[in-house]
Design a protein around this nucleic acid. Structure first.
Length: 207
DNA sequence: ATGACGATTTACT
DNA sequence: GTAAATCGTCATA
């Protein structure tokens, strides 16, 4: 029996969610039964309708971001720049469109499979381990996460879920806060320290 | 029907 | 460091 985060774990505000996800393990169980997984080392919090940088800013609700309005524990996977997917963990209260974006992982299970999926999208070779999941788009490539997984319940017995942080298996270390990446046009919201990452990790998207 | 825009990544100078 | 890649989505008409 595998332990996974459940509804109660997701019913927290996005900044708390983003911090608690650090050290947890994101797991992609493929239809074949193979597991691809990695320990989360970098996240960002998106604070909903008031947050200019959020897809739900001003109450925006469209087909694309509909799953942000789902219950806590819903996956919000969106497609951007015509080529990349990014994965969020919806949290907070029901109908409150807040979430934590997953930005980087330490590859753990299925590393060779991840390398194969990533290699299909770049010419760089060799593809070193720190280049497999060091970015929101990269980790979705590596774990085969796309819009087909948008809206799934992370607490259900499906192919995408999160295992809790455990003292034995999770890296310890200082969590630092920083400005979020790629949201410079969001005015004062761009300055909020809503990005969290393990200070000494070589696996983060940037320092 | 059209046009502008990405919560990014890659390749190149 | 800069620029290109590439297309689903949304707002406007």
């Amino acid at each position: 029996m595998t332990t996974r985060l459940g509804t109660d774990d997701y019913a927290v505000d996005p900044a708390a969610m983003a911090q608690r996800l650090i050290g947890c393990r994101l797991v992609r169980a493929l239809p074949s039964g193979d597991r691809l997984s990695g320990v989360i080392v970098e996240t960002e919090a998106y604070l909903g309708v008031k947050d200019r940088a959020s897809h739900a800013f001003g109450g925006r609700r469209t087909a694309r971001n509909e799953s942000m309005y789902g219950p806590p524990g819903t996956a919000y996977v969106y497609f951007t720049y015509g080529m990349h997917h990014c994965m969020n963990v919806v949290c907070g209260e029901p109908d409150e469109p807040v979430a934590a974006l997953l930005r980087a992982l330490i590859p753990v299970e299925g590393v060779e499979r991840m390398r194969k999926y990533r290699a299909a999208r770049t010419r760089r070779s060799p593809l070193i381990e720190t280049d497999l999941c060091s970015g929101p788009g990269k980790l979705c490539q590596a774990l085969a996460i796309d819009r087909g997984l948008d809206g799934v319940d992370l607490g259900a017995s499906g192919g995408l879920f999160i295992e809790p942080s455990t003292p034995a298996k999770s890296p310890s270390g200082r969590i630092v806060r920083a400005r979020r990446v790629g949201v410079d046009e969001a005015g004062r919201w761009a300055r909020r320290l809503l990005r969290f990452y393990l200070a000494d990790s070589r696996y983060v998207s940037r320092k």
